[in-house]
């Protein structure tokens, strides 16, 4: 196996870094929530945006989606679809955060399971940065093959 096109050009390399960063974040967030689904369900409820009947289902489903997104991003399969999902997720999180920040609710973010801090504008900025990284990966990622011959 040979390294090629490394470290140039810059854009695919940056997309690779973004992809791996997103994967680490999704993996950590997903595992924390898988370990404590009940606490995550309460965190979702605290956002006051969803009816009771879907809260537990989302608390079960979302962490696994995050872990699968992380796995796909690391391996480099379905990267376009996964980065699109990632961008949509961060957009949804950012919307939910904004609504509750405007409402003035002082609730746990739930971003990384039950032990996350309370919501703030910093979390919104972080979500939007991650959204931008996802879009960057969606457009510019070239996969592992670009770097390894």
């Amino acid at each position: 196996m040979k390294l090629r096109n490394f470290p140039r050009p810059f854009i695919p390399l940056f997309a690779l870094i973004c992809r791996l960063t997103l994967a680490i974040i999704f993996f950590y967030a997903g595992v924390e929530k898988i370990l404590h689904p009940q606490e995550f369900a309460v965190a979702i409820y605290n956002y006051q945006l969803l009816p009771d009947c879907v809260i537990n289902l989302l608390a079960i489903f979302l962490p696994w989606l995050e872990v699968l997104i992380a796995a796909s991003l690391v391996i480099g399969i379905n990267t376009r679809g996964v980065s699109l999902l990632s961008a949509l997720l961060f957009l949804i999180f950012a919307t939910a955060l904004t609504i509750n920040l405007v409402r003035g609710l002082d609730i746990s973010c739930g971003c990384f399971g039950a032990s996350s801090g309370n919501i703030s504008w910093f979390y919104l900025a972080r979500d939007l940065s991650l959204f931008c990284m996802s879009v960057f990966v969606l457009i510019y990622d070239r996969g592992w093959r670009y770097f390894f011959a």
């Binding site: 489903f61 696994w64 872990v67 379905n78 679809g81 699109l84 969606l138």
Partner: peptide, 16 residues
């Protein structure tokens, strides 16, 4: 792209 995203959604739901 949409098809890849849908596959991941379906697999995640199943595993979850």
């Amino acid at each position: 792209t949409f098809r890849e995203g849908s596959i991941i959604l379906a697999v995640a739901l199943f595993i979850a």
